[in-house]
Design a protein around this nucleic acid. Structure first.
Lengths: 249, 249
DNA sequence: CACCCTAGCGCACGGTGTACGCATCGGCGT
DNA sequence: ACGCCGATGCGTACACCGTGCGCTAGGGTG
């Protein structure tokens, strides 16, 4: 019972506060925020709801977190920790496989936490918590080891990351629309096509694309689409590596 | 003067409502929203502030717009109209130049309206207003004309778009951080480096990158970084085109 | 002239992030 | 052993948000 006034207050509190837990801490808050976001999505995250889940008041969180924006930064860095970036030393000559694995890990992470898409714009990809920094260094090592000189390795890396993020954020947005709509994927795509053709007639190419993939497994198509672009990008980077190598002779 | 009660109300209203303008309309609302977003950023957009700018009450907007979310969809589609996609017929064999121009136009559009980044996650890249639909069809024609078969052209296209958007959103986030910080670009980068090295020591590769570009023009570096990845991606697509062509013989 | 339909408005509701000051309590100096 | 103090949690309050609702005034149509 929230007994408005602080009369007879400590009865409940004492047991909890005694010695059991730190009760609240930045780590617990961030971890619970991730859980809340995963379960209920981005618009369900408020300081009050998060506080409630932690058995605390909304404003108590501010002892451990400066603002909601800072909380989001922490949350984003937290999930970056889930990335699996192979060490460059483990497969020095298989940079392509390593980068592909890395890209897949990043894509899987975003699809596991689709709310990241809604939050990237606020935080900026540039916000560098320790996890992101560490993973960037490891990933950079991959490109470095592959043969890119220092001034080029980070361009190659950020290009690949941009591709993966752009691709996957769009995919996540589509999936969330699909989930919200409650329709089957067939129905949704049919509806989208109808809307498009209603506002703009004469879309032969888009229509051809729709028709062609109408009876294939959508999930597989998404995987293949992601892999296709990544392959092309890596082809281009490999060609650049070849140029660099030949020039060095 | 907002005379709470509707006594003697029409004095001001009458002149305006007479016959001069439709006073409010979806087009006017969307256009003013874009202006507001450009001038004051995404967190300044509220129904009340937008209403005020239009000389109207907040809830009056709801006669022309179903919700704030719908407004944002309209706004996003509005700025998609600014894209310049060359017609495929104009330069059939110069697909690379056309796509590069297209990518540049998209990048410029996002940098002109950086709030798009904060909004993409909510709307989803999949939301297809008439402008986006039309531009997609035009852009798809470029790839089609270049030699990609129907099932592949849209993969190539969405890959390039993903790269451009990912790259530019990250750039816009960085620029907004720069603007908010009030520091010079040199100071900001130095600060970022310090933060990174403080939380994770031993970052030889990231550090090397920092040092190497410390005394170059940052804006030029951003342009070059964008162009670098795009070139590699297009190289990879061209190689794929070559394979397709040779296979056809 | 009577009617209705529409655009605009004021009000109110439930929700948000968070500033502020008070209550509590464990650990420390004496 | 005692008293204080810093850290921690909480309740209240404020300004602001999106938006549902019912009203009014006015122009177009019968």
């Amino acid at each position: 019972m929230p007994t408005g006034k602080p009369a007879v207050p400590s009865v409940w509190a004492r047991q909890r506060t005694k010695r059991e837990q730190p009760a609240l801490s930045q780590d617990r808050i961030v971890a619970e925020a991730v859980r809340l976001l995963d379960e209920e999505g981005v618009e369900a995250l408020s300081m009050r709801s998060l506080g409630t889940r932690l058995g605390a008041g909304a404003t108590s969180l501010y002892r451990h977190v400066a603002s909601k924006d800072e909380l989001i930064e922490l949350v984003v860095d937290e999930v970056y920790g889930e990335l699996e970036v192979p060490a460059a030393e483990e497969a020095p000559d298989a940079w392509r496989e390593s980068v592909t694995a890395c890209a897949g890990s990043l894509r899987a992470m975003i699809l596991r936490h689709p709310w990241i898409a809604s939050v990237l714009g606020q935080v900026g990809l540039a916000q560098l918590g320790p996890n992101l920094t560490r993973q960037s260094e490891r990933m950079l090592a991959l490109f470095h080891r592959a043969g890119f000189p220092a001034g080029e390795a980070d361009r190659a890396m950020s290009g690949v990351i941009a591709y993966v993020i752009g691709m996957t954020v769009s995919e996540a947005a589509y999936l969330s629309m699909l989930a919200r709509s409650g329709q089957s994927e067939q129905e949704l795509m049919e509806g989208l096509r109808r809307v498009a053709e209603q506002s703009v007639r004469d879309l032969p190419l888009l229509r051809e694309g729709y028709d062609q993939r109408a009876d294939e497994d959508p999930a597989r198509l998404r995987d293949e689409g992601f892999a296709y672009g990544l392959e092309r990008f890596l082809d281009g980077l490999q060609a650049r590596l070849d140029v660099l190598a030949s020039r060095q002779d």
